[in-house]
């Protein structure tokens, strides 16, 4: 009888450890870690039957209903270009150029992937908002206080993430996303 309890206990311990590790990995993995471009990461097999188990589970939790790469590539950044975690207390300049896609947008989320309420009801900037003639060199400001021009409020003092959606990617973005240039994220002043 004692032996039965012992083996049952070991079995339960193993099951709990395995589940805990899987849940921790799903909750703490980026939305696709196959390709890294500066602070941005993406996955090659998001939304497809070729995705491995971990990718599929992470996408289900953090980006359910994501499209496959030929339709849309999703890049996520949780740090600035210097590697520091994005903080809602800080100002950032997101500076980029031409992106090989039919349209793109940058959206700010909390680390769980949810929009953060703010009094401006503003959460993203799309390529349609970039002034004519500036597509090759643009800057979007991100920060807790209202700023002139293209601006996204952080809406929080805590951590946040940025998702860059590129719909109908073409050229190098479609063929080999590891070789493209993506917007840089430069931190400015932070409030205490």
């Amino acid at each position: 009888m004692k032996a039965v309890f012992k083996w049952t206990g070991l079995l339960v311990l193993g099951l709990v450890l395995g589940i805990a590790l899987a849940v921790w990995q799903i909750r703490n993995s980026g939305l696709g870690n196959d390709v890294r471009v500066g602070p941005w990461t993406t996955g090659r097999d998001i939304g497809t039957a070729h995705a491995d188990m971990k990718t599929r589970a992470v996408v289900a939790l953090r980006g359910l209903l994501a499209l496959p790469a030929q339709e849309a590539r999703y890049f996520t950044a949780a740090t600035d270009s210097a590697g520091a975690p994005l903080s809602g207390k800080c100002r950032y300049a997101l500076t980029g150029g031409m992106i090989e896609a039919r349209w793109w947008s940058v959206t700010l989320y909390d680390p769980g992937g949810w929009l953060i309420p703010n009094r401006w009801n503003r959460h993203s900037i799309g390529s349609g908002r970039i002034p004519v003639g500036r597509a090759g060199g643009w800057t979007v400001l991100i920060g807790p206080e209202e700023q002139p021009g293209l601006w996204i409020p952080t809406g929080t003092d805590g951590a946040f993430e940025l998702t860059l959606r590129t719909y109908r990617p073409h050229g190098t973005l479609a063929r080999d996303p590891a070789r493209i240039s993506l917007p840089t994220i430069t931190r400015g002043e932070c409030r205490p």
Partner: peptide, 19 residues
């Protein structure tokens, strides 16, 4: 071995069923 086998099984089982 029992702990590792159970952990591997539940780890992959969780990843597979989560979606």
């Amino acid at each position: 071995a029992v702990v590792v086998a159970a952990a591997l099984g539940s780890y992959y089982g969780t990843l597979a069923t989560a979606p």
